[in-house]
């Protein structure tokens, strides 16, 4: 046990010695470096594609992507998770991190997202407009108002005066999608990018009122990021033409 302890201490000491020398040796590109990106779950498909581009452009760099609910990721960063970049799915979750003064600079908006109605393939219930969701015989599932997609739903309900008698308020947008794709709900309000990512398991119905509740996707380099320079490059890639193309193909809007 004692020997283990000594070995552990030695390891920690070694790590402590090696990390400053690593960040100082940025002029040696041969050394492998790891960029850690925390991103909202809805960015999964886009950021996976961008990871390949980034690793081609920056040999020896390994991009590690950690996806999750934006508010969970924000809590993790506030509690000291070693992220270099944070890409959130709402202004309010990014605010958790900026309020803790943990971003290197002010966050910038790199994409927007709007809601779409998801129905079963072929739209058997003939949902055509947002107002149709008020029909009592239609089983509609929405996000809880505490999460960004639910906040957007509530905003549209308010502006249109349509009151949706939802059978469930789910904790995240993917749960809403699952309830629709398994056929247990007739309709659900999700992001247009979720409909695209479902690859035909659900059918999307657009509605003009959705533009009233655009969701912003902010991105920021985390303060004291271990790979600050690479983090800047990642943000530049996301905000550049490559990022715009890939995000656009998934259905994201440009800010």
């Amino acid at each position: 046990m004692k020997r283990l302890l000594i070995a552990g201490v030695a390891l920690v000491a070694l790590a402590a010695c090696s990390s400053p020398s690593q960040s100082a040796s940025t002029e040696q590109p041969a050394e492998s470096r790891t960029l850690t990106v925390f991103a909202a779950a809805s960015l999964t498909e886009s950021f996976n594609a961008l990871e390949q581009t980034f690793e081609q452009q920056n040999p020896g760099v390994d991009v590690v992507l950690s996806y999750g609910g934006s508010s969970d990721l924000a809590q993790q960063i506030v509690n000291g998770a070693p992220a270099d970049v944070f890409a959130a799915a709402s202004d309010s979750t990014m605010k958790t991190v900026t309020d803790a003064q943990l971003t290197a600079a002010a966050p910038t908006i790199f994409a927007t997202n709007v809601l779409q109605i998801a129905t079963a393939p072929g739209n058997p219930k003939g949902v055509a407009a947002f107002a149709d969701l008020a029909k009592p015989d239609l089983k509609t599932v929405v996000c809880a108002p505490q999460v960004p997609c639910g906040a957007a739903t509530a905003k549209i309900e308010q502006s249109t005066g349509v009151d949706i008698p939802a059978v469930s308020e789910e904790p995240d947008v993917k749960s809403v999608l699952a309830k629709v794709s398994t056929g247990n709900a007739d309709a659900g309000l999700v992001y247009v990018t979720d409909v695209n990512a479902s690859k035909g398991q659900v059918q999307g119905v657009s509605f003009p009122e959705s533009s009233a509740a655009k969701t912003n996707y902010p991105i920021a380099v985390v303060k004291n990021a271990p790979q600050a320079e690479l983090a800047q490059k990642w943000v530049a890639l996301v905000e550049g033409q490559d990022g715009a193309n890939i995000l656009g193909a998934q259905g994201f809007g440009r800010p």
Binding site: A166, S168, E169
Partner: peptide, 13 residues
């Protein structure tokens, strides 16, 4: 519960 019943105040939450 969340997978099978959903989440609605007073009914399933």
């Amino acid at each position: 519960t969340i997978a099978f019943a959903g989440s609605l105040q007073g009914t399933t939450r």
